[in-house]
Amino acid sequence: MIDTALFGAGRIGKIHAANLARLPDMRLKYVVDSHAPAARELAAVHGAEACSAEQALDDPAVRAVVIASSTDTHAELILAAAARGKAIFCEKPVDLELERARQCARAVATAGVPCLIGFQRRYDPTFAALKARLAAGEIGAPEMLIVTSRDPGAPPLDYIRRSGGIFKDMLIHDFDICRWILDDEVVSVHASASALSDPAIAAAGDADSTAVTLRTRQGRLCQINTSRRAAYGYDQRFEVLGSRGMLQAGNHRPTEVTAYGERAVAADLPEPFFLERYRQAYAAEMAHFLEVMRDGAAPRTTVEDGVRALELADAATRSWRLGRVVELDQV
């Protein structure tokens, strides 16, 4: 049995706690949260103990940590867990500062512990099936990737002010998808952004709508369009154009029933938000974390992937601010 400590008892922490509880070889021993009542409540649900970060990290019986706390705690907890030889699962991003993220990667490498970053889209059955078919050569060599990623609504302004900006908070997933699907590294970034849904977002120094073009070492192109306002639900889809065809991964809906009437054909709207859309992916990534610890499987989403995605987010932010293409060696 692998004793695990969970940091963060918010909405994503609750998802990870439930998925941990379903795994036969893992046990949630501790829940840590700066809001003690939330920690106690979640711990009680799963027969765990609410405690301090120090108690959880210093317990030699704890072999793994799951970090689902606020972004500003990620790096500190990664460094502390690595120093104690514990396996690490951490939600994105590693940190908002690139050098701090690189420091975490070095610490993980020195400690020789696995560190998975929560890029759950790689574990989504639909996206993973597309990746497998692409790798099998079904459409030849990939040449272009088009990603659409739209939230149903913007988060609270207080969150936006401390999020690090839309490129680090929202598009970091899309940057990871680009690297994963095209199996190539990005050499240049051109980003444009606007605040269209709420002028208060612009006043906070951020944007809610973006258009990004990435170019890879092999000349492949990726176009990403994002918005924090989609009236019809959570819009997550992409397509890959290859030398011999195209593969598309579309939205998920609550049901796949389609009604055909005299005036229209109707289907369900997309899932309302990420917790519903990626329900299976969250379970799969935690099951993979167990495989890494128990069976020695190679991590699919590493701390280096987290650093690379943050590099692209930094470059996109610079590109937007400067109004020009940014080469990665300038970051």
Rank of each mutant, 00 (worst) to 15 (best):
L241R: 14
I166L: 08
A87Y: 04
P60I: 02
A38Y: 12
I172A: 06
T73D: 05
W320Q: 14
E143L: 15
A136M: 06
L182N: 05
I67W: 00
L42D: 04
L269H: 13
H16A: 07
R217Q: 14
E304V: 01
G118P: 03
H16Q: 11
R277A: 15
L145R: 02
E185A: 08
Q223N: 14
E276S: 14
R179T: 12
Q236G: 11
Y260N: 09
V108G: 03
A298C: 09
E49C: 12
R133I: 01
K86C: 02
G13F: 00
D151C: 10
R161W: 09
R150D: 10
C178L: 07
I224K: 03
S197L: 08
I201A: 11
L77R: 02
A249D: 10
A202Y: 07
L322F: 08
V325S: 09
Q55S: 12
A297S: 08
V186K: 06
F175N: 04
L171R: 06
R11W: 08
V32L: 12
L145S: 05
D235V: 15
A287Q: 12
P93W: 04
A38Q: 14
E97G: 11
V303A: 04
L312R: 03
T73K: 07
R150A: 15
D198M: 11
I12A: 10
V331L: 15
A5K: 06
H35I: 12
L312V: 01
V303L: 06
A17H: 05
T258V: 15
L221T: 15
L290A: 15
Y30E: 02
E76W: 03
H74N: 05
S209D: 13
R228A: 07
L171I: 01
D208T: 02
A81N: 03
H35S: 09
A61Y: 06
E304H: 12
A109N: 08
T110Q: 09
R300C: 04
A283Y: 00
M293Y: 07
R63Q: 11
C178I: 05
A56I: 04
A135N: 14
R277D: 14
A193G: 08
H46N: 05
V187Q: 14
P37F: 08
W180K: 04
N19Q: 12
A284W: 00
V212P: 05
E262M: 10
V94E: 03
L145C: 03
A44D: 10
Y260D: 10
F274W: 13
A316S: 02
V326L: 15
G323N: 00
T255K: 07
R161L: 08
S52P: 06
R106T: 05
P60Q: 04
